[in-house]
Amino acid sequence: MTDLLPQNIHDALAAKAIEHLHPREMIIEVLRAIQDHRGWVPDEGVELAGQILGLTPLQIEEIATFYDKIYRQPVGKRVIHVCDSIACWSRGAENLYLYLQETLGISPGETTQDGTFTLLPTCCLGLCGEAPAMMIGLKAYGRLTRERIDEILATERAEAGA
C-alpha cells in the first residue's frame, strides 16, 4: 500500500471517511492523494480508494475517468499540460505544442523515453493574460516562447532528477 499512499495519509483519509456522512464526496480527494504520491492512479489505487470509502472499484472508476486530471495511465515524473484553448491558440499555442512534441520526441499522450515528461493538451488554464501558457504538474508557466520552453524543460528535468 505504501507505494500507493503513505500510511499516515491513508489513515487520515480512512478516519475521515468513517466520520463522513457521505464518503462518496471524498472520491476526488482520495484519488488526488494517491496521484500526488504515486504520480498516477493505477488499478490498485482505484481499488484502494474503494476500500477507504466503502465503494466498489467501479463506483470509483466512474468518477476517476470523468476527470481529465486524474491519470488512469502511467505518466512521466512531470505532466506537461499545454493549453489549446482560444486565447493561447490566438497567440501561437499550436506551434509551441508542435515544438514541444519535436523537442521531447513524443506525441500528445506519450511519455518521454526517460520517463520524465508526459505531454497532454488541456483546456484553458486561466492564464489567458500570459498566453500561450502551459502547466507542468501544478505549476503554471505563461508567455511561452521556444526559448522559454527550453529553459523550463531544463529546469523541470533537473528538478525531476532525470
Binding site: D43, V46, Q59, E61, F66
Partner: peptide
C-alpha cells in the same frame, strides 16, 4: 448493481465494468 456503470466523458463515454 454496483459493478457496472458509466466510464469516461464526452463522445467517449463507455458502459462497462472496472475489469
Amino acid at each position: 448493481g454496483t459493478d457496472f456503470g458509466v466510464l469516461g466523458t464526452n463522445q467517449r463515454v463507455y458502459f462497462g465494468r472496472f475489469r
